[in-house]
């Protein structure tokens, strides 16, 4: 039933995947903060990045971690392109229409992947895929540890960028006070594109980090997208630090749920948490930071 060892294992697994959720959610939160839309295509972009990682590995034998050097910047540009071509022209449309737009984009990308690469589960298995060590009684898989560490480093780099650079400050300014930002000479159209690009870049990095221990399939992004959405609500919409912390909370909730409840109910804990937060702390656990 509920031995201490199992509990420890659940905590380790939860924390490790939680870091990745945190990074995916940071990107989602950033996009929400600046563009005020929930990007339902966020997971689909992650899926594309996972395929990119897969093909780079399968065809060119590029290490999944090394491939980030290519996929990160490439998806940053892809994100900017999506924002410019798909989102920006509909900026003044009603909010629910913009939401449907990103949902439509997600469906399009998923089905495109299905047509191009079929629905088979594909896996990337570099030499270190099964490397692991024990921590007390818990098993720590090295690829999961690397994914978590990489995600946290990337998220911290993003926070640093938002705090220390002019473009980062402009992003926060635009999230808080769009008109004030325009009157300061900030090219807000460009900043919106950059924010979307960064969001796509974050989720691409997350995608590359998980491929050594996850499967790749057209709908793989969906579960990450839903988890990231829960994380963003938990952490406070547009609160970047909250997104990272919320990632760990959701990761833990999911893996503890999986330990305590039978298989198909494992996400019950996550969504119960989600509903409770919406009921009692609608602004998020860490206060509703706009662009913090």
């Amino acid at each position: 039933m509920f031995s201490l060892d199992l509990l420890l294992q659940a905590v380790v697994s939860g924390v490790l995947l939680g870091g990745v959720y945190g990074l995916v959610a940071s990107g989602l939160s950033l996009i929400f903060g600046v563009l005020r839309i929930i990007n339902f295509a966020h997971g689909a972009v992650m899926m594309l990045a996972m395929y990119a990682t897969y093909w780079l590995f399968a065809l060119l034998h590029v290490d999944p971690y090394l491939s980030i050097v290519v996929t990160g910047p490439a998806f940053f540009l892809l994100g900017m392109l999506i924002q410019r071509v798909v989102i920006e022209p509909n900026r003044f449309a009603a909010e629910h229409n913009q939401l449907l737009l990103t949902l439509g984009l997600a469906l399009f990308l998923e089905n495109l992947a299905l047509v191009l690469w079929q629905g088979d589960f594909r896996t990337v298995r570099p030499a270190y895929a099964n490397a692991s060590f024990t921590l007390g009684e818990a098993l720590v898989e090295v690829p999961r540890l690397v994914a978590c560490a990489g995600a946290v480093v990337m998220a911290l780099a993003l926070f640093g960028f938002l705090r220390l650079t002019d473009v980062g400050k402009a992003i926060r300014a635009l999230a808080e006070e769009p008109e004030g930002a325009m009157l300061m000479g900030i090219d807000v159209g460009r900043i919106r594109a950059v924010a979307f690009g960064i969001g796509a870049g974050c989720v691409a990095v997350a995608g590359a980090l998980v491929t050594p221990f996850f499967y790749v399939a057209p709908d793989v992004g969906e579960s990450f997208n839903i988890m990231a959405f829960v994380v963003v609500v938990l952490g406070g919409m547009g609160n970047f630090v909250g997104a990272l912390l919320g990632g760990f909370i959701v990761g833990l909730a999911e893996s503890l749920g999986a330990t305590a409840l039978p298989g198909s109910l494992k996400q019950l804990v996550v969504f119960a948490l989600f509903v409770l937060v919406l009921l009692f702390r609608p602004a998020g656990l860490f206060g509703g930071g706009r662009g913090r």
Binding site: R172, A173, E176, A181, M182, L183, M184, G185, D187, G291
Partner: peptide
Amino acid sequence: LPCHRVVERGVVHVPEGRKVFPSL
């Protein structure tokens, strides 16, 4: 001209209600 080009030319507007960035 878009807003930011007007600012670049040297016309700067302090809006009603200040519109400072509160958490910055």
